[in-house]
């Protein structure tokens, strides 16, 4: 009897070799991917574009199920929610009257000081079609891309605050690196004490605070906003609030719920240092720092402006 099946011993040895070869190939791909080569980036963008319709198709029924479950959940707690909303409306009405008087005062003061008016953000809003929650990466795909004017480096926001920034752009889809990702570092400042720092994601719920001065004493619940240092993100976007852990360390809880992201807006008129298409992100020789306008929290020399704070 002659069988077309090759001998088991031979195939298993060959398979083992192939397996090892592919593992080594993966290992080299991991390091190659980390180099952020343009070819790899373009290939990723193309594949994201190509797979986007399939992902949308698969995610739609799951999204519907989740929506139905949430509806059922909210229907059971309608009475409590009603009471909560009523008290919230009362509180908001008080705040509204206060804000209106403060807004008028602010406009008058701006007029007196001849402050240059803040540029309005131009935004493009896209729908999120993948959920965050990867074990090694926290990114989402949105359905706007190069054809809509999206460029790498542009900040992504939601109605609650900063979501992340664009890291990969396809023709009709873009990938956003969420601020909770381990590779995302956001320059921020503490709004009450004015101390600058940097937040780093941990692939978890909370963000780590790095490069915060030892003199700084953050308060629990203190709001953090983007400082605009480094020129990658605009200043004044809400990032989160300070929370204190049991081990007395301070972390940041983002204001955005990344699990419930449905729409994300991309600020397209912010000229990020990294958003230029033809910008070469290679190595450049060190240059003497040029005197620049003092940013929030620090003065032009790069040190914290304590005198202005006292005044």
């Amino acid at each position: 009897m002659v069988s077309g099946k090759p001998s088991n011993n031979k195939t298993s040895k060959f398979g083992k070799k192939i397996n090892f070869f592919l593992i080594l190939l993966c290992l080299s791909l991991v390091f190659l991917g980390k180099l952020d080569l343009i070819a790899v980036r373009n290939m990723k963008a193309f594949m994201s574009d190509f797979l986007a319709p399939i992902t949308i198709l698969f995610n739609k029924p799951v999204k519907e199920i989740v929506a139905v479950l949430e509806d059922v959940k909210s229907a059971t707690s309608l009475r409590e929610e009603n009471i909560r909303f009523k008290s919230q409306i009362r509180r908001l009405n008080v705040w509204k009257s206060k804000t209106e008087s403060q807004e008028l005062e602010l406009l008058e003061l701006r007029e007196l000081l001849k402050v240059i008016p803040k540029k309005n953000n131009q935004i493009i809003t896209g729908r999120v079609f993948t959920a965050a929650g990867g074990i090694f990466a926290n990114t989402v795909l949105i359905n706007v891309g190069e054809k809509d004017g999206i460029v790498i480096g542009q900040p992504a926001i939601s109605s609650l605050g900063l979501v992340g920034y664009v890291i990969n752009v396809g023709i009709s889809s873009s990938r956003i690196l969420l601020i909770i990702d381990i590779n995302a570092m956001i320059p921020i400042y503490l709004t009450d004490s004015n101390w600058p720092a940097v937040t780093q994601g941990q692939n978890g719920e909370l963000l780590k605070i790095r490069f915060l001065s030892s003199e700084a004493k953050p308060l629990e619940g203190e709001v953090l906003e983007t400082s605009g240092h480094g020129g990658q993100l605009p200043s004044g976007i809400n990032v989160g609030r300070i929370v204190r852990s049991l081990s007395d360390n301070y972390y940041v809880k983002p204001t955005v719920n990344f699990q419930k992201l449905t729409y994300v807006s991309i600020i397209t008129n912010f000229n990020s240092k990294y958003s230029s298409k033809n910008n070469f992100n290679g190595f450049a020789p060190l240059q003497k720092p040029m005197p620049t306008i003092g940013l929030k929290g620090i003065n032009s020399s790069g040190t914290r402006n304590s005198e202005s704070l006292k005044n």
């Binding site: 791909l29 991917g33 594949m47 994201s48 992902t55």
Partner: peptide, 17 residues
């Protein structure tokens, strides 16, 4: 990896392992 946006090759290696 492309769908999740993680480093290229990480999940391939995991599945092969």
């Amino acid at each position: 990896d492309v769908l999740l946006g993680s480093n290229i090759g990480i999940n391939s290696m995991f599945f092969l392992l």
